[in-house]
């Protein structure tokens, strides 16, 4: 469970394998290779954002937060 080091590329082979085994979907090697950098970018973004989260941060709190924020005034 060690964190992926930056620069450890998500490969086309990994995408192909995941598509085949986890989603029963065929992805050509060329297409898998093309998708890999984008998937790596998203994964890195999520891991970076997750560093700032707390285990109590529930997704459904989004609605409550919007509700709470609606009446807040600008700070003076």
């Amino acid at each position: 469970m060690t964190r992926k080091k930056r620069g450890t590329a998500v490969t086309g082979e990994l995408i192909e394998s995941m598509a085949r085994t986890l989603r029963r979907t065929v992805v050509t090697p060329a297409r898998a290779q093309a998708m890999a950098p984008g998937i790596e970018r998203l994964t890195d973004a999520v891991l970076a954002a997750a560093d700032a989260t707390d285990f109590n941060d529930e997704p459904a709190r989004f609605g409550s937060v919007l509700e709470a924020l609606k009446s807040q005034r600008p700070r003076r």
Partner: peptide, 12 residues
């Protein structure tokens, strides 16, 4: 009865 009901802190 004591614990049930809507809660502005829990959207669910």
């Amino acid at each position: 009865r004591v614990i049930a009901g809507a809660d502005p802190n829990d959207a669910s």
